[in-house]
Each structure stands twice: as structure tokens, then as C-alpha cells.
Amino acid sequence: MQTSRFAGLGGNFGVRFVGTNAADSANSFFVPNYALIDGSLRFNWRRTLFAVNATNLTDKRYIATCSGLNYCYAGYARNVIGTAKYRF
């Protein structure tokens, strides 16, 4: 049994890098590269797991993809989700 002050606490973070890619089939223009930071925290308490997961922590604005000059799509904004799980 863990008895330290931080027993049951955990987390992680990571960086997603997407390099430059062609925005049309003729390779006439390109979508610039971007990097996003994601992270999570979790805490086990008795039989319950609490977690918070976040993507794009810096809320970076970026173009995710294009399928032509007139069809470019913005990437997802910051997203934070909290969950709680109970084990029976």
C-alpha cells in the first residue's frame, strides 16, 4: 500500500509535431508545420480514478489541412475533458 503524500497521483505531457505537407495535388502550395502540447493528470483515490486530459494546451491557432486553395480547415482549439471512474 502506498502511503506517501503523492500516492495515486500521476500525469504526462507530450508534444505533437506535424511537418509541412502539400495542400493540393499539384504541390503548388503547402500547409506550414505546427507543434501542439498535450497533457493529463490523474489521481487514484480509494476505488475512484479522477482524470483530466487536455489537448492543444497553448490554444494555438493553426491550419490542420487543405484540399485546395479554397478549402483549408482550422485545427482544433484547446480541449479539456475531466472524468471519474469508480471500480465496483
Rank of each mutant, 00 (worst) to 15 (best):
A84Y: 02
R16M: 07
N70M: 09
V52N: 03
V18N: 08
N79T: 13
N27E: 12
Y62F: 05
Y76P: 13
F13H: 02
F13I: 01
T83V: 07
S4P: 11
W45T: 09
Q2S: 12
V80G: 06
L41P: 09
G68K: 07
V31A: 04
L57H: 04
K60R: 01
G11H: 01
A7K: 04
A54M: 10
N44H: 12
F29H: 00
Y62D: 06
D24R: 04
L49D: 15
S28C: 07
V52K: 03
Y86C: 04
A77M: 07
F17G: 04
C72I: 01
R42V: 13
G68R: 06
F17W: 10
A74K: 14
F43W: 11
C66W: 03
L41K: 09
G8C: 02
K60S: 06
T3K: 13
M1V: 14
N56E: 02
N44Y: 14
Y76C: 12
A23P: 05
S28H: 08
F13P: 00
I37V: 15
A22N: 05
L41I: 15
Q2H: 12
I37H: 05
L69E: 15
F6E: 01
W45L: 10
D24P: 00
V31K: 06
D59T: 04
F50C: 02
F13A: 04
R47S: 13
A84G: 00
G14A: 04
T65I: 12
A84V: 09
F6D: 03
P32T: 05
W45Y: 14
M1I: 15
A35F: 02
F13Y: 05
T65S: 15
D59N: 12
D59A: 02
G68Y: 03
R16D: 11
F88S: 02
V15H: 05
G8A: 00
R46E: 14
N21K: 15
R46F: 10
S67M: 07
Y62R: 03
N21S: 11
I63H: 12
F30A: 03
N12M: 10
A35C: 03
